[in-house]
């Protein structure tokens, strides 16, 4: 099986024209990852949680900075320019730091599941184990926010070949785990249709700062270039730009100021439909019958 057969090939040229509400060429969504990394997680045979023996003080405390300090900086900048969050949630954050989840809910943010913890990996999970974390996600987020999650970003981007079938079985509508396109894509599963919504590795703040070692201002410039290009191409057929964030990175004091200017730029540009992930999926499905 050298092709997992996730979706059909569809060239970027000559696609049907997508148009976002208000006749906008580009849908922009912001995806804060609200995460909890355990300080002493159990070992997984396929992936190490921390590079250092537990406690990995720098690794753990860096993530903790996002929850103690960075979240509110990021969230206030988003609220100031009218960007709701679509939250990639380590659902155990509802138990550990409910204040953060409540803050997002009060701002009108949408929550989807990013697993239970970012230190528990799905590789090698049985179907029943994976069903259990999906059910846990639905129940925990519903109890904490009243929302029924509609989407999935695999915990720490760890998958099984069953994941997409199982989240469809549970009634979820979208996956953020596939990086093959700048427009939504229909994903046929054994249990019905999912929509793959463009998330992003390349303009994820994690890639910007940890993979490409960008300065804060270079990262801000990267986001603006990404936006300008996708907005221009969206006149042909509507595009989606996601800005995936982590408060422990973007909420650092040397980064939040330049990032705020990105949000100002996009909000003032006028071409962007600033939306939640579920709204983008709904608008896409309304135009492209399954």
């Amino acid at each position: 099986m050298d092709d997992p057969r996730l979706y059909a090939y569809l060239p970027y040229r000559n696609r049907p024209k997508l148009v976002w509400p208000g006749n906008r060429p580009i849908a922009v969504w912001v995806a804060p990852n609200l995460e909890y990394y355990e300080i002493d997680p159990p070992a997984h045979p396929k992936r190490k949680s921390w590079p250092r023996p537990h406690p990995d003080v720098v690794g753990f405390s860096h993530r903790d900075y996002g929850n103690r300090v960075g979240h509110w900086r990021m969230a206030d900048a988003m609220s100031e320019f009218g960007f709701p969050g679509s939250v990639s949630l380590s659902v155990a954050l509802c138990n550990h730091h409910p204040e953060i989840v409540a803050d997002g809910a009060a701002r009108g943010w949408e929550f989807f599941s990013h697993g239970i913890y970012n230190t528990r990996y799905a590789y090698d999970m049985s179907v029943d184990q994976e069903r259990a974390i999906i059910r846990d996600s639905l129940e925990t987020v519903r109890a904490s926010t009243g929302q029924t999650i509609r989407g999935w970003l695999a915990p720490a981007l760890t998958h099984t070949v069953n994941t997409l079938d199982l989240i469809a079985e549970a009634g979820l509508d979208y996956t953020c785990d596939l990086y093959h396109d700048d427009q939504p894509t229909p994903i046929a599963t054994k249990n019905g249709l999912l929509t793959a919504i463009p998330y992003s590795l390349e303009v994820n703040d994690h890639y910007g700062f940890f993979v490409y070692n960008m300065s804060p201002r270079d990262y801000a410039d990267t986001l603006i270039r990404q936006y300008e290009r996708l907005a221009a191409e969206g006149e042909t057929s509507g595009t989606v730009m996601c800005i995936p964030l982590h408060a422990y990175l973007i909420g650092q004091p040397h980064r939040i100021g330049p990032f705020r200017e990105v949000l100002r730029h996009i909000a003032n540009d006028g071409r962007a439909w600033i939306a939640r992930a579920g709204e983008i999926v709904d608008a896409y499905r309304a135009q492209v019958p399954a």
């Binding site: 355990e38 045979p45 550990h96 239970i116 999970m125 184990q129 974390i133």
Partner: peptide, 17 residues
Amino acid sequence: TLDPGYLDYPRRRPGYD
């Protein structure tokens, strides 16, 4: 398959783990 205990979360509680 993973050990069933991999889905136990003994320190899933208010505050830190």
